[in-house]
Design a protein around this nucleic acid. Structure first.
Lengths: 343, 343
DNA sequence: AGACAAAATGAAAGCGCTTGCATTCGCAAA
DNA sequence: TTTGCGAATGCAAGCGCTTTCATTTTGTCT
């Protein structure tokens, strides 16, 4: 015998048809209070749980949305995801999360896997992906929203912020404090529009002072401590030292700060370091990290709301752009008097 | 018309029956190479993806396992989860993750939700949960493994380590260095056997020196920076100051370290701080954190392997226990000469 | 009491797939 | 040529649910 109860078992115990039980589960107001009670009792007694697959098959809905994030290993997306999930749960929708490991091919795979699972919607990070993927999503009529990223004229529904403008503002502040030897440790930009936009933003700011970013002062690294520490070490030991390092995110900045310390130097006295994202990590670093605050939770909530409205075919479901804020903490200061290889 | 292709469409295009297509998808070796090719072509041309729900319904398998973790917000489970996922993916199994927010009721809900989704197996954190849940799992014949936790005589399959012994070792080392005013900031122990075991371990060690843990030197806090910082502040400002604070995990330790710094004190000169878990965070703190190293990745892999073997009904599928290692870094040192309110 | 609408319920047809069993095919052996 | 047999394929019955439509019950108004 089947080790779990089915609708039919419940119906049998309650003395009604399966249709009625289904109604109790989905549209309780359609069934007489007394009957409903009997059914609910049977459900409870049998410890019945609906079979998800059967339900999906019959109703062609799953009350599930999928999100594909690059990784769970660092906390960048954690808070936003949590908020997304909570907001969705409020509407009875379940979130299932997959990871792509920053690999476009893997992301494409995961998208198809989630579609196969019949998700009612999709949350994707950033905008950069093959057009064929967007084509497929449109053909399948699956609502989706792009998060963490926003730019004027993005043709898709997004919930994000202007990475480029935010990075520009950060760099401008660094310059305003008098820094001129500015370096950047960016995330890997290939296939990552956020990382790329942040580089462009810094470039924008530097350009207005006749400065630039080239292979001597721009390094791309994966978002992890080891790689970013290595990058920082390289910047601080080869050629003229930067007085400020603008980092692509907080994790990179943490690695940089660690490397600086390991070299026997101090931040911000010897070199300022800035981050991006304002995750918890920024606060426990010493010095605490000057960074760009991103409203993770609000973005998650907004994404949920937008996605649900798209699903409901609401006409006015439009993209949402958030403001970011520069939060200045201990890791950024005016450049000190030149030491070391100053001429 | 349906916006996605079905098995039937593929069968039509390839000029075969749906049964054959199904075989191509599931047991390719059963079908003639030529036919197979035709089918595969049709699949590609139509961009066909099997309907997960239908498949689950018909075959009663999903190739999916579920994991329920307390939270994604801190990185404690991230690495292990990633490893779990990778290992499962190697066997064509998908991982779906849910969060309980350290709430037993919510965890129970999520378990039922995942069972409803027809997961072929379950990964749960820790052992402490209502017996009725274990009963249900057994009745449903769903294989499951408990991770992050292990003790002699645990009746369920686990992949973990001995939290109590590890915490004891940590505390013993603290005592060995000469500390006598030792305090602990633990995670919330209610419904969390790991947190509870760690408290017991510390108690064990202290007891051998005639010391104890009571409301003056033991505080439980949620696993977040704000709460743990507040706890540390309380410990350091009320009554005789501890010379060492043993923390329930690295996140708590990070909060404690931040609080210590904010009070104008220094670690380890004024107070030593230790953590537990050895997540990345431990390395970027200043001073870097003395903590208990937990082999997250290996645990994730072992959990995957054990679960798959349970699913395959292998008889020798047994629990796995890992060793932990004490890693000493800057945050722990012998107690300094008493300052402040020393009498 | 009868007529009629509204409310409550049931019967049954799928949803897209897998799989046990029957059928067909090709080919070697008799 | 027939027979026998494995290999390849097709047929069709579900899997557990939702939902349309028909039917029965209830209540309201003459």
């Amino acid at each position: 015998m089947r080790p779990w109860p089915t609708l039919e078992d419940v119906a049998g115990m309650a003395g009604v048809s399966t249709a009625t039980v289904s109604r109790v589960l989905n549209e309780p107001e359609l069934v007489h209070a007394e009957t409903r009670l009997r059914v609910e009792e049977a459900v409870a007694r049998l410890d019945y749980t609906p079979h998800f697959g059967a339900r999906a098959l019959a109703s062609n809905r799953t009350n599930t949305v999928g999100a594909i994030i690059p990784t769970m290993e660092n906390a960048i997306f954690a808070r936003g995801l949590q908020a997304l999930q909570e907001a969705l749960a409020g509407d009875g929708v379940t979130l299932v999360v997959a990871t792509s490991n920053y690999d476009p091919a893997r992301e494409a795979e995961q998208i198809r896997a989630l579609l196969g699972r019949g998700v009612d919607g999709l949350v994707l990070i950033g905008e950069a992906r093959d057009p064929s993927i967007y084509a497929m999503l449109e053909r399948r009529l699956v609502p989706f929203v792009l998060v963490w990223s926003w730019r004027p004229d993005c043709p898709w529904p997004c919930v994000g912020f202007d990475n480029r403008a935010a990075a520009r503002a950060m760099a401008e502040r660094v310059l305003e404090l008098g820094h001129r030897r500015v370096a950047m440790i960016a995330g890997v930009t290939r296939g990552n529009d956020r990382a790329a936009a942040r580089v462009e933003g810094v470039r924008d700011a530097l350009a207005r002072h006749g400065l630039g970013l080239d292979r001597t002062n721009l390094i791309e690294t994966p978002y992890n401590l080891k790689a970013s520490a290595a990058a920082a070490r390289r910047l601080m030991t080869a050629g003229p030292r930067p007085t400020a390092i603008v980092c692509g995110n907080d994790v990179i900045a943490a690695g940089a700060l660690t490397a600086v310390r390991a070299l026997g130097l101090a931040a911000p006295a010897d070199v300022s370091v800035t981050g991006f994202d304002d995750i918890d990590l920024a606060l426990v670093l010493d010095p605490s990290l000057t960074t760009v605050h991103v409203p993770h939770r609000r973005m998650g909530e907004a994404a949920a709301s937008l996605l649900l409205r798209l699903r409901a075919q609401e006409k006015d479901a439009r993209s949402v752009v958030f403001e970011t804020a520069l939060v200045e903490r201990g890791s950024l200061a005016p450049p000190g008097p030149m030491k070391g290889e100053a001429r």
